[in-house]
Amino acid sequence: MTVDSATSTAPRQGFRIDFHIWGPVVALLALIALGAFLNSNFLSYGNVTNVLARSAFIGIIAVGMTFVITSGGLDLSVGSMAAFIAGVMIMIMNGLVPSMGVGWGVILVGMLVAIVVGFAAGLVNGLLITQARIEAFIVTLGTMGIFRSLITWLANGGTLSLDYGVREVYRPVYYDGLLGVAWPIIVFAAVAILGEIIMRKTPFGRHCAAIGSNEQVALYSAVHVNRVRLMTYILLGILVGIATIMYVPRLGSASSSTGVLWELEAIAAVIIGGTVLKGGFGRVWGTVVGVLILSLIGNILNLANLVSPYLNGAIQGVIIILAVVLQRQKKMER
């Protein structure tokens, strides 16, 4: 009576790539092959480092976003939040230079500030969503505007620049690395691996998926729905802080144009990676693949003059839609 197509794992089909699972990986490999074919420098150490390092900010944020979306939420504020955190961080570090002098002390304080502000911003989002019971879309749409205005106001409409001396000390956090691997890549990888483990192996990850698939069932199964929800937003806030820590040493500045549209890129990466937008199922490794796909598109279009740069956004759009179409489960047989 209730038997349907999903129960029959068809052995008769023989070997076939299951796009539902491997679609994003196939797309990534195809892009890499295309890039290597178009430009011999594509696979050079320098270019690979560039692409991975610039993916790191969105990537770190997108890992957090995977948890938020898996538990049925959404956060539109992360781009402005990153700009705001960068601004606060720069102002505090600049302010401390006269008393603390130029050195790692100031930078460590700055890093701590970034994480604390990220935590607080995530807490505000999370409390408004879980306690005041306002929809996540509305809350984060609101805080998105608030953070963006705050950074514009802090920077007086211009650009906040990090003290030159501090910058010179801080620079290596973006540009140097360990054994030839840049720090942003190392941090991104660490966050991604930890995220994957948390999602698959811990009660927290399982609870996120349960809440996203049916909040009522989770509630009746002794899951602390509000607490888990709140934690996803706080986790995301902290990760935005970490992403900002990696971002600031790159150009040493923050302005109202910092982090514009990062939220949409992060959400797009999560969806391309196979996480379900309405929640219930998430996978962090997919998100990582999604982030890489998005930055590779830009990189390849820059490296090879394939199409007019005006169409860059259109190509990203096509990829996002294709990714979701490929992953959609087969419809019920008629």
Binding site: R206, H207, S213, N214, Q216, V217, A218, S221, A222
Partner: peptide, 28 residues
């Protein structure tokens, strides 16, 4: 269907949801 089981999840995930802490605190 509305409050008891996650219909789009497997039996394993449904079975252990209520007593998940019996299967390890840190890692499942």
């Amino acid at each position: 269907k509305g409050r008891g089981l996650l219909l789009r999840k497997s039996m394993r995930e449904n079975l252990t949801l209520l007593a998940l802490n019996r299967f390890g605190r840190l890692a499942i």
